[in-house]
């Protein structure tokens, strides 16, 4: 069994998350080769074949050209699996590649069993076990689900891939950094975060009051930030900040995969939620099943004593 692992490269650097693909392929027991569009010096540390194209020529972001380059590598390598991270890069490329080759795609794999690949469904409340019917398949793996242990090493043997015609419909203008920060959550020892369960903007203040009482900072989930109830610098999760404070209190947060990815390494996690089955319960050391609007004021009264 052969796996072609699609490395990620951004702002002139190989992304560390690339090595999660290696961990996944090792779990599969597959023979491994990388595909990498970047700068030669940044190629993955790996004793094996790395299909390589210059980002200087094909861009860091260009799904049209990158798809065609992956297709070139697939033709040379004939892998059973073409493996991406379930990331902004994989979202763009994986389905296009699967459709171009008319082969199965399985998205956001979190586990491997003898009967198929395990993926989350229904906002992580359920799982599905899926099996590709086609001989080849495109796979994307959830970030953090397969962690690479140790220091990657080795010397890649580069196999160049090229396109005769590099005309493209897509013009990449550049990157925009996140807006300037109101707070640096990475430095907070205690973070108390508000999720959609707070209901409305005014109620964020109740969560902020708990943050102050615990000597911590206010955090928030993506929907709360998108609604304009909290500043973007307070967003915890894969599209915001990844944090690992001593104490994390999740208030009215159901626990989307993206949010949990950003806070699961906290030393101690408390969740306050009406829904006992909310996925946040899976990572919480303590889950308080309660309406936060009643519970937090009662808690504050006791903490101030």
């Amino acid at each position: 069994m052969k796996a072609l692992l699609i490395a990620e490269y951004r702002q002139g650097k190989l992304l560390e998350s690339t090595y999660e693909l290696l961990a996944f392929a090792e779990r599969l027991g597959a023979e491994k080769a990388f595909f990498f569009i970047g700068a030669e010096a940044e190629a993955p540390h790996f004793d094996g074949k790395v299909y390589f194209a210059e980002a200087a020529k094909y861009g860091e972001y260009n799904p049209d050209l990158h798809k065609r380059l992956v297709l070139e590598a697939v033709q040379k390598e004939s892998p059973d699996y073409i493996v991406f991270l379930h990331s902004s890069y994989g979202w763009d490329l994986a389905p296009r590649l699967a459709a171009a080759l008319k082969i199965a795609q399985v998205s956001e794999i979190v586990g491997i069993t003898a009967d198929g690949f395990e993926v989350p469904a229904c906002n992580a409340k359920m799982r599905r076990l899926l099996k590709p019917v086609t001989a080849q398949a495109v796979l994307t793996i959830q970030s953090g689900a397969f962690s690479y242990q140790g220091e990657p090493g080795g010397t890649p043997s580069l196999v160049p891939v090229e396109l005769a015609d590099s005309a493209s419909r897509i013009e990449f203008i550049g990157y925009e950094a996140a807006e300037k920060k109101e707070v640096d959550l990475a430095r907070a020892e205690v973070i108390v975060s508000a999720g959609r369960g707070v209901g409305k903007k005014e109620n964020v203040e109740i969560v902020a009051a708990l943050a102050r009482a615990l000597g911590g900072e206010l955090g928030a989930t993506r929907p709360v930030v998108d609604a304009g109830w909290a500043d973007h610098s307070r967003q915890v999760g894969s599209s915001g900040q990844t944090v690992a404070p001593k104490l994390y209190v999740a208030c009215g947060i159901s626990g989307s995969i993206q949010h949990i990815a950003g806070m699961k390494k906290s030393d101690f996690i408390v969740a306050i939620n009406k829904d006992k089955d909310a996925p946040i319960g899976e990572v919480a050391n303590v889950l308080v099943v309660a309406d936060l609007l009643q519970f937090i004021p009662a808690l504050l009264a006791r903490l101030s004593k």
Binding site: A98, K102, I103, A104, Q105, V106, D115, G116, P120, A121, A124, K125, M126, R127, R128, L129, L130, K131, P132, V133, T134, I269, K276, P279, G281, E282, V283, A284, N285, V286, L287, V288, V289, A290, D291, Q294, F295, A298
Partner: peptide, 25 residues
């Protein structure tokens, strides 16, 4: 035909679940 087959759906395994507190506020 479909290219992917669903073997099954199931709730995730409850692992490492901590203390659950329920009752009077």
């Amino acid at each position: 035909d479909s290219l992917v087959q669903t073997e099954k759906m199931y709730p995730p395994e409850k692992k490492g679940r901590g203390l659950v507190l329920e009752g009077d506020v």
